[in-house]
Design a protein around this nucleic acid. Sequence first.
DNA 1: ATCATGGATGACAGCGCTGTCATTCGTCAA
DNA 2: TTGACGAATGACAGCGCTGTCATCCATGAT
Lengths: 340, 340
Amino acid sequence: MEKTRKTTLSDVAALADVSPITVSRALRDPEKVSPDARARITLAIAQLGYVPNPAARALASGRTDVVGVIIPSVSNNVFADVMRGIYDGLQDSPLGVQLGTTRYAPSTEEQLVRVFLSQQPAGLIVAGHDQSPGARALLERADCPVVQIMEVGPQPIDLVVGLSHYQAARDGAQHLLDRGYRAPAFLGAQMDPRSQRRLAGFRDCLIAAGLGGDDPVVTTPEPSSVSLGCRLFADLIATRPQTDAVLCNNDDLALGVLFEAQRRNIRIPDRLGICGFNDHEMMSAAEPPLTSVATDRYEMGRAAILQIRDRLAGRGQPRGHAIDLGYRLVPRRSTARVTA
Amino acid sequence: MEKTRKTTLSDVAALADVSPITVSRALRDPEKVSPDARARITLAIAQLGYVPNPAARALASGRTDVVGVIIPSVSNNVFADVMRGIYDGLQDSPLGVQLGTTRYAPSTEEQLVRVFLSQQPAGLIVAGHDQSPGARALLERADCPVVQIMEVGPQPIDLVVGLSHYQAARDGAQHLLDRGYRAPAFLGAQMDPRSQRRLAGFRDCLIAAGLGGDDPVVTTPEPSSVSLGCRLFADLIATRPQTDAVLCNNDDLALGVLFEAQRRNIRIPDRLGICGFNDHEMMSAAEPPLTSVATDRYEMGRAAILQIRDRLAGRGQPRGHAIDLGYRLVPRRSTARVTA
DNA sequence: ATCATGGATGACAGCGCTGTCATTCGTCAA
DNA sequence: TTGACGAATGACAGCGCTGTCATCCATGAT
């Protein structure tokens, strides 16, 4: 097989009978090229099957069409939804994505920020606002839009799309109290900063209700899973048999609690109330359907990309702009106790 | 804030008192540089906080450190597991990932292949072996390793890591028959080519058992979900009330069937057997635990990357090499019928 | 002492594109 | 008719790195 040199801008230019720079402009900024030349160039590109070389573009212009995305993990289905939003937000744009995973390690995150920024990305999306001081300094100095997603909080670096996990969990806990549960517990896995904030919301709700005596909390740093929900719930009722409701740090755990409760013939919602977090699609399908605090992970990713696209188009929001996507308590049968 | 020019190879070279090319070599191929020079260079890099410019590297060398990954969707949790394997396989390598999603559209896939290949990737990972003729031609001509994942099949393009979905589903169906079920049905969503092959395995199993009379199959092109499992199962028993077992195209659907059966007080496994596909973690946690055909999605991603890394290191497998990761039937209570 | 050898290093050019001017040409007001 | 102006286009250089070949020097064999 013959080594065929890739077709370049100059090849297109020669065929279209213009100079290379005009082809470059036709690609980058069609308005600036006469309709006539543009037509010839378009034709030549099609005939030659020309595809621009992004490395050369990046080198010459000091910009890339890549958005860096730094998240803790790809297997967490919260981030799967976010990624779907990101990819949808990218539609009809020349942008691509470079994904990095921190595995919940701040040092890895800082390293990724450094590497991504050195590649002059079109924008950067990072999860949360608990970056290390070093990473934060780098991001503040970045000359591209930076979007912190997942969570709203104080002192944004640049743009923010998220919600208050503290409030969301606090409302979830309040819902349990409103339904007449008097000994709710908190179950958490993979206790990242957002989970910590949810836990704080739960605790404050109990304290405000005068139920803050002991601390009905079972957590683990292990990654979340349905099986883990079973185990944590087993631990919980072994140590606190009086528990009459659980606020779960996420839906996986809630599903595990449901299964374990079924195994032990614990009646839901009468003997035990269950509330999840995120409102994954399966929650409404379960039997009984499971209450959850709904978050819009998909929109989180999509909005983040749109923020970046707006900025690149020159009509973006100013530094410090935050979009609070909020949350929505979705009460279902798993907490529909007949109030005593 | 002052516009600080990025530090380049030459800056490092000047500080280390060597020529730029020696720095380049120290980075790329440390063996070829004297220990003395190497030490000075390492120091200079640290002092300056130098980070190489990948665009310049790519332009000059015609190679990048990016592996292109082309999958149908990021939200499908099968691919989430694959991605986790890919990222783990990347550990301790200079490689990065560029992800593209086809949304199950062959034309999008071909477009992505074209764009990715034009960027001279270090390797390419594509899902399945049902590429369009155009995409296939491009991939065959690619001058980088190409790994087809998910499925083993005839006429590999280059490397393959997968399993036989036909056999896996056929074994799943056979398991239902072995357990005494006599009217099993197939439930499928998002009927991509691999799902089609699973369906074929199911059908052939029934035919071989002399049960091939009608065609107890309910499918939909919609994306899979737990709720969809509920609905499809409702449709199924409305039209085929004699159904005594379901082989589900994936675990989401199986979970939906479980919930819907619970809602209708259909006893599992006696009145209805349920078998899923993939053996997602939740299957063992469910009540009753759900039988599934286990596949190793994580290893699929990891092995694909390792194949590419081996190739790049010059000790790779020859073109046409296929790794069959197989599958494993995991019988659980959901099909533990007391055989009549 | 001489030369072949190989390891270490360097000079040069160029990868494909775009930023920054400069140039050309047609149009319109004076 | 003339000059000013803006739209369209082009020339040039250079982005930061690496492939290729050339050079240098210490070593050991002759």
